[in-house]
Design a protein around this nucleic acid. Structure first.
Lengths: 357, 357
DNA sequence: CTGAAAGCGCTTACAG
DNA sequence: CTGAAAGCGCTTACAG
């Protein structure tokens, strides 16, 4: 290393060429063995309380910070937590990431983010890369993964918590299937049904369902919508409008126009995501279609801006920040080797009635 | 490790307890020394081409993948790249992150994300944590950092590229100041001035500037607005509306109401960010104020949804995805030890004229 | 161009 | 409760 000479001679007596304060430096200064320092600093049981204190004092005086790479190499476990989300262009997942990341960092973990773009093979590849870093834990969106991915997750032995979804209750009742996965989310199907029933209760009868992106959670909302309409005896299959393209305001506008053109008698539209619904609201304004008197519009997720629309958007508020945080917390528990109180945590949802319905 | 017995006996002859295929495994199978394998795989010069080929073949047959932790420990350099952004709740920074992350991953680097919340001491703390991982490179938002942070960045010797901003040209002309930082962005001040001139050219005279968050880049847009108005001889200091709160649609609505109440004669408002402008547009709709005939509204950044507003929002399109990508590319160059073509890359901006002005 | 050897900074059975 | 020793899986001067 070229002229370390130029740096001022510090008062610290680091032996290493790298200039880093190491475990041995602390051990020497504290007059104990490196093993003891290692144990004391990690709060391992079986260390004399007096020693712990001394070691901690010396350690912080010297400004010692453990080297993550060395630690990972020796222990075969890093302080990284990998998180897999579909997209960064959907505020939903960003909120999830933000909350999880905040919680994990507070506990001393670095987040390794992977963006799958809803592509199963990209997800698999990302997981492989992340696993190389021997993450201490794994956070993944959804419960649907291809078999290889699932196998990678299982065989890695890395604690894993799933986000945004819960296993269907019937697969849960069978005693013989795979171990129930850890997950934090809410019942997407129920949420879809609840919003639909809410629209029915307000007197709507011809309720269309309009969706984009069509990920598994969107499909569950669709099933919820279906079953609620069937319950009420007003299910009409041709009122499903599904578009696999990514969700956006612009697409919401386009879909709204199509629906109003093709099915002018529709009296409500349930959009699977707020951005679509917001776009529909803007389109209605442009087209001079009055909401909610001519047609009611509802969204899902309560994204930012929905309360500012004209009329303000009725939607389902989903606790994504709380999901991110709770999932991180559950993962921390698992990483400590403990069992979480509940392996499946249902954080629910809330219907937000505003002026668009 | 409990019953590794249960896993089927592989054809691989891994010596290690961990079951990982290591460098030595490859070396043995290829009949060369570990050092040679190491060099061959990293494409170091000074290795017999024939050997390189053989080693690569063996390596991929055995499914060898280098251990990042071991590599980081031995080389004192990881394959992490740290990125520091202010917020995840602003789409601008998410776009930056998304693009940078994509580019870096393609080159084999893992992104370590740090969210500063516009807090200088949090930024410093995050940087310290990230530096522990010996990142191969650093991407940071903006050019403004507290002295300690700057010192950490410098003394770490880690290549660093700044995002979204460029040094003022006059500080550049002095030959005696600090080495010019690497950066990719555009001239915020000029963009602010350009939009203001655009409004002036369309006949507006009493142009207010409304801003939130007030980060250094927002302030530069303010300076641009000021100088353009001064040039035109219509600068009016009381038309500055600055609010340090985070930017949002709701706040844009509130600010719009205030401005129209306090200064009804204003004929245009330049909002420092599209979310504020979108909120203002919605508020105008609610209040029955017609845009642009009574007052013109312009935003900044061309965020998603701005083209869907009613009227569609005039704004400045900023190349944030391209900035993220180009900055990552520049960083990759620096990490290779090469010099980028241009240490400062100006990616410009574009005025998008729509119906709101 | 290639290899033997030391070293990166920790953790973890293994003894005591 | 504590320590000596081996080992995690690489890289990198140093010789040749």
């Amino acid at each position: 290393m070229p002229n370390t000479v130029s740096s001022p001679p510090k008062s610290v007596k680091s032996q290493r060429a790298t200039g880093r304060v190491t475990l041995s430096d602390v051990a020497q200064a504290a007059g104990v063995s490196p093993s003891t320092v290692s144990r004391a600093l990690r709060g391992e049981r079986a260390v004399d309380p007096a020693l712990i204190e001394r070691v901690q004092a010396v350690s912080s005086k010297l400004g010692y910070v453990p080297d993550p790479a060395a630690r990972a190499l020796a222990s075969q476990r890093s302080n990284h937590v990998a998180i897999l989300i579909p997209l960064l262009s959907n505020a939903l997942f960003v909120d999830l990431l933000d909350a999880a990341q905040k919680t994990l960092r507070a506990a001393g973990f670095q987040t390794l983010m992977g963006v799958t773009h809803y592509d199963a093979s990209e997800e698999e590849q990302l997981l492989r890369e992340q696993l190389l870093h021997r993450p201490a834990g794994l956070l993944v969106t959804g419960l649907d993964h291809n078999p290889v991915t699932r196998k990678l997750m299982d065989s890695s032995q890395v604690p894993c918590v799933h986000l945004m979804d819960l296993p269907t209750s019937n697969s849960n009742s069978t005693g013989t299937n795979d171990a129930a996965p850890y997950c934090v989310g809410f019942r997407q199907t129920e949420a879809g049904a609840a919003l639909t029933r809410h629209l029915l209760a307000s007197g709507r009868q011809r309720i269309a369902f309009a969706a984009a992106q069509l990920d598994p959670r969107v499909m569950q909302r669709l099933y919820g919508w279906r079953s609620a309409l069937q319950e009420a005896g007003v299910y009409e299959p041709t009122l499903e409008f599904l578009n696999p393209a990514p969700s956006s305001l612009a697409l919401g506008g386009v879909m709204f126009e199509q629906i109003m053109q093709q099915r002018p008698a529709v009296d409500a539209i349930f959009f699977c995501n707020d951005d679509l619904a917001q776009g529909a609201l803007m389109a209605a304004l442009r087209m001079g279609i009055s909401v909610p008197s001519q047609v009611a519009i509802a969204g899902f997720n309560d994204l930012t801006g929905s309360d500012q629309m004209l009329p303000a958007l009725t939607t389902v508020r989903t606790p994504r920040a709380r999901i991110g945080e709770a999932a991180a917390q559950m993962l921390l528990t698992l990483m400590r080797g403990e069992a979480p109180e509940l392996p499946q945590l249902d954080l629910g949802f809330e219907i937000i009635q505003r002026q668009s319905t």
